[in-house]
Amino acid sequence: MYHNSTNNQQHTESQSEGRFSRPSIPSRINHERRARKVFFFITLTPIILLVGIIIALVIRTWPILEKYPLKELLLGTVWKPQKGLFGFFPFISGTLWVTLVGIIIAVPPCIFTAIYLSEYARQITRTIAKPLLDLLAAIPSVVYGVWGLVAIVPLIGNHISPFLGKYLGFIPLFSSENPTGYSILAGGIVLAVMIAPFIISIIFEVLSTVPKGVREANLALGATRWQTVHAVVLPKVIPGIGAGIVLGATRALGETMAVLMVAGNVVQVPVSIFDAAYPLPALIANNYGEMMSIPLYDAALMGAALLLLIVILLFNIISNLILKGILKRSWG
């Protein structure tokens, strides 16, 4: 029986080959199969890379994780690598401060600009705005740093900080004891401009998922444009806007050079927006030179990178999933 059936199969195969194929086709199909396999393995690169980055950083961080409890590392405020004290808290709080200030400055104008472009602007304005925003996004972070150094730091040091310090200085948030201008606010302003084109384009994309008909339904009731945006468009896209802002925040969290150049880099837990801050990426970039000369220093710096990576991955995955859901709905 068994023998018979195999025979049969062979028979049909050879028959089908005889009927349907010219000599070149089997080799072309084999070729296709082989090439497909190669392509498949190349396509795995992103996943391998992602896993590889995580594993490499975990391995490099491991020595310090073994030696100190996590809580001590994350909440410790003393950073003296020579004495074996690795308290990350000043850097963590510096990162959060700069990012938060950047987001707070960026979000209102970004939302309004995106709404303007999506709901009010004429087609020609949109056509002009797109490449300009792309340009803003293309400027390298070092150039942003130069701009911050030349334009923003003196502005804060000479004008904003003395002014706000004089009138609002009694609030710790605005007290200005640092006259240089290298500050959280400087980092925040530079970050805000850097992430603006990014946030604007995400919000714009999210807004364009709202069907035209819904807007028109409300306009037909005699609504003004803003009433339509407020009552009909925004409620539908709040999660998308939130995801866009979080994605913008992850950009800000990891930004290195521009912030490094304007934030002051003093190891302290800041309390005022005019204080200097020392964010995690700046810590890594500034000290990579000597990290092999002090025990555990390299593990500590790689740990900083790992910490950054984990936080960013978390935010990134959540907001990407939210955005995927929203943007897909519009395709369907």
């Binding site: 992103p46 992602l50 391995i59 992850t250 890594i284 990178a305 960013i312 990407n320 995927k324």
Partner: peptide
Amino acid sequence: GKFIRISLDILWGIPSIVYGAFGFSV
């Protein structure tokens, strides 16, 4: 495809300093 696209999006969000640190450790 969805999985690979999402991992690309995530890679895109990883800051360059982390790439640097990764490259350095490798």
